[in-house]
Amino acid sequence: MAVSELAVQDTTTLEMRLQQLEERVVELEENIPEDKVTIVMFSGELDRVLAGFIIATGALAMGYEVSMFFTFWGLNAVRDNRTLEGKNIMERMMSLMTPGSTEGMGLSNMNFFGAGARMMRLMMKQKNVENIEDLINMTKDMGARFVSCGMSQMVMGINTSELRDDMEDGGVAAYLGDAVSSKVTLFI
């Protein structure tokens, strides 16, 4: 074989390998997690909700995108009113037994019928910790997405009109769609 023929063969092999590598890089790049944090807010107690929003604001301050998925008791954190109209007896009971706004959230421990939560709020205020309502609004203002789970809303009889106006609707696939490309995902 002549030298020039060998050279052509080498170049062709190299080009092929290069193309394979390029394809592999594209594939890998598609799987790199983005600068995102995804949080499932399942709990509705003041202390747990506080933890969720502190992590969210911290992530936003670090330049991360934040999506928060509110489901079951977590919906307490994004409720702003209570309606009984158009609900069946069990839904009404559920409505009356869950807080109609963040003001009514209790503590996960030592709640003592709300006295614990009031004491915690007072202690936070004395120590200059942001109150939960301001923290939630700040999280939203900083660009977090709030998504509510339609299924748990329906089960618990919570109308969309009882939630904040700036909520998006989404289910498990919406959460997973975000979570698989996030660097951090939490269940609170």
């Binding site: 502190i54 604001t57 301050a61 200059n128 910790v129 700040m138």
Partner: peptide, 13 residues
């Protein structure tokens, strides 16, 4: 000064 987590970070950002 006087502010607690996460406010120093949020305001700095």
């Amino acid at each position: 000064t006087g502010l607690m987590c996460p406010m120093p970070l949020v305001k700095a950002r």
